[in-house]
Design a protein around this nucleic acid. Structure first.
Lengths: 156, 156
DNA sequence: CTGACTGCAAATAGTTTGCATGACG
DNA sequence: CGTCATGCAAACTATTTGCAGTCAG
């Protein structure tokens, strides 16, 4: 139910883009990732498999992947652009521990209904949504650390 | 329901911040605006009333206004931070046009149930969530600008 | 072969920080 | 009056662009 390197490569070709080793490795990284990743994140991880790759290439690859509709951009934090795979069926979201950074995935966000309601009410054509829950995981809660809930994110 | 310069100023004082002419003029600008504005937008407009004000001061004023919960930040476009008055001091979210940047607020996200379910399942103590919908507003859709969905691939 | 792709370096845009001066309370 | 705020300049981070060499198709 998810993308494969092959399906992504053929999408690139269909859009007139060439498939290069650098693009392959970036695609592989995005397929592996379970989180939103910034270009710099991807760069760091990809350097292992492909030393000498340039950060510029990551940017350009992300741009064409977005142009092909394969990934989408989110704006999850302070001036920090990040990308995630555009899975419609394997659609998923994250529950993030604000103390230790642990991430838990979940998929059943049940927002389709809300999305439809909003589209009708606002006249918008909604393409995607960004949903993240922030909190403390069990362990951090036990340790009694102060949660870092310093108003950065739209409040709950 | 809506803010006045006075109410904002007293909120600042309550949080231990001082009220200065520069802050007044920034607050005035934000109260006038009905759309979200970037720090640079505010700077440009504010220079008329208060020449010599520094862009840095805008940044710092926005930071403290956010800290007081009076405005909130959105992530509406490519590395372009912008701010809105927080009209409903209650919980709300944004629907953002990825072409023109228009922002629509909504409040009934209905996520409490999902939140409870997730807390039970994951053991997390959820403090807040971040929810943004991205799409095209009616006007931008009419203008026929290419939505970001143009090449969406029916995945394999 | 040839145009598209890469990677370096440099340019640009947006935001933050250090510090001396000035003003709110 | 003391402390916090301002504004300049400079530092930083994120991203884009120019260009010569390289490679996929």
């Amino acid at each position: 139910m998810s993308y494969s390197p092959k399906s992504i490569e053929s999408a690139l070709r269909q859009h007139g883009y060439k498939v290069t080793p650098q693009r392959r490795v970036v695609i592989g990284e995005i397929l592996n990732a379970h989180e939103h990743q910034t270009p710099a994140d991807i760069y760091e991880r990809v350097k292992g498999d492909h030393p000498g790759i340039g950060l510029v290439t990551i940017y350009r690859t992300l741009e064409i992947l977005e142009d092909c509709g394969l990934i989408c951009e989110t704006h999850a934090g302070h001036s920090c652009r990040s990308y995630l795979l555009r899975h419609t069926s394997a659609h998923h979201h994250h529950l993030i521990c604000s103390d230790c950074g642990k991430v838990v995935d979940f998929s059943d966000c049940g927002l389709t209904e809300l999305e439809n309601r909003l589209m009708e009410k606002s006249g918008f054509k909604i393409n995607s949504h960004l949903l993240e829950f922030l909190g403390q995981c069990r362990q951090c809660a036990k340790l009694g650390r102060d949660p870092k809930t310093k108003g950065q994110v739209t409040h709950a």
